[in-house]
């Protein structure tokens, strides 16, 4: 088993692309995600007819982080046309006689949402009784999307890259005939899978450390809990990924087919990993998450990083992952019977 693990390590190190995929690609993508989900400082543009809007409102709007554009009464009446013709404008604000306030948006988007929230703040400034105080049990109001969703990516990366590398290596081992050759030596079937898992675990540990340190100390991802538990969860997830890769490799005839199977193996897991709150998924489809290894990892990491959970809170998820890995281990060991009954 140690022999096999040593070989996997040596082989992976000799293949520069695998090393890059495990150690560099996650950092690259994490950085990208950081910029995509981070604070954008977007300033929304709102068009008003200065004649029709009361002066105190204009004053209040000017206090907000908003770009104000003056339009004529005609343009305000034709708000839909105006927005279609002026791409840079996110919203038209009007005060018609029979209603309090009328906001027309170009489309339901984050930009529009920014405009609305700034307008609401301006209104609250005029009329303090309308002001709403928002507070959170976990986190703060000025956390970015990266802070609240970053943990999902830690889970995804620890699973995905190790999965790809190990599934491909095992498919190659089948198609090149080295697996048959291996099975003609006095190695036990269980040792083959265990050796593979052990070999990739070494990379999983290094990968987890690099990703976590980078996310927390360089990208300043907020973390309420103990980094050690995060690392443990990520390594456990990666170990499950090796077993998962080995199982998938049974169904793949070539390395290309591993890639073709990604829509069935990885993409559903992305949706159930916490990007979308499971309670919001209709028809109880959220329960599907229980058959997805990433769910257990992501839930544990979320517990630690967002809620500051300790081992007593997350052990259930870790147990779920461990059982998952053990079941796959048994399946994989049985599948090797195809190469040698013994």
């Amino acid at each position: 088993m140690i022999q096999l693990a040593k070989r996997v390590i040596r082989q992976t190190i000799n293949d520069k692309r695998s090393v890059m995929l495990i150690l560099v690609a996650p950092l690259l993508i994490l950085t990208l995600v950081y910029f995509l989900l981070g604070d954008s400082d977007y300033v929304a543009t709102v068009a008003i007819d200065p004649v029709a809007v009361p002066a105190p409102v204009i004053d209040a709007l000017e206090q907000q982080e908003l770009e104000l554009v003056d339009i004529t009464a005609d343009e305000a009446d034709q708000a839909l046309d105006y927005l279609q013709q002026h791409e840079g404008v996110d919203a038209v604000l009007r005060f018609p006689e029979n209603s309090a306030m009328d906001i027309t948006l170009y489309e339901p988007s984050t930009k529009g949402a920014t405009a609305i929230s700034e307008i609401q703040e301006a209104m609250a400034a005029i009329n303090p009784s309308a002001e709403a105080e928002v507070s959170y049990v976990y986190g703060t109001q000025d956390q970015t999307l990266f802070d609240s969703l970053g943990y999902v990516f830690l889970a995804l990366f620890s699973f995905f890259f190790v999965f790809i590398i190990s599934a491909m290596a095992l498919v190659r081992e089948r198609s090149r005939g080295t697996l048959e050759r291996l099975m003609m030596t006095p190695i036990r079937r269980g040792e083959v899978i265990a050796g593979y898992t052990l070999g990739y675990s070494v990379f999983a540990v290094i990968q987890a450390i690099i990703i976590v340190l980078y996310a927390i100390f360089v990208l300043q991802l907020s973390n309420e809990g103990n980094i050690g538990w995060v690392l443990l969860t990520m390594v456990l997830l990666a170990v499950t990924a090796v077993s998962f890769g080995a199982t998938i490799s049974i169904f793949a005839g070539s390395e290309l087919q591993v890639v073709q199977l990604i829509p069935f193996t990885i993409i559903p897991q992305v949706f159930f990993s916490g990007l979308i709150p499971l309670d919001l998924i209709p028809y109880h489809l959220g329960n599907l998450s229980y058959i997805m290894p990433i769910y257990y990892g992501a839930a544990a990491i979320k517990g630690i990083m967002v809620y500051g959970d300790g081992f007593s809170d997350i052990w259930g998820y870790l147990a779920g992952l461990t059982i998952y890995a053990l079941v796959l281990y048994v399946i994989n060991t049985q599948a090797l019977k195809k190469f040698r009954k013994l």
């Binding site: 082989q11 090149r176 048959e180 030596t185």
Partner: peptide, 28 residues
């Protein structure tokens, strides 16, 4: 038992010595 398959069945990312050391290790 020794077995030499028809296709090469070697680990391409290992050296000749690496391949031999690996199989030697499997026979303890």
């Amino acid at each position: 038992l020794g077995f030499m398959p028809q296709n090469d069945a070697l680990y391409e990312d290992l050296s000749a010595q690496g391949n031999l050391a690996f199989f030697g290790g499997l026979y303890h």
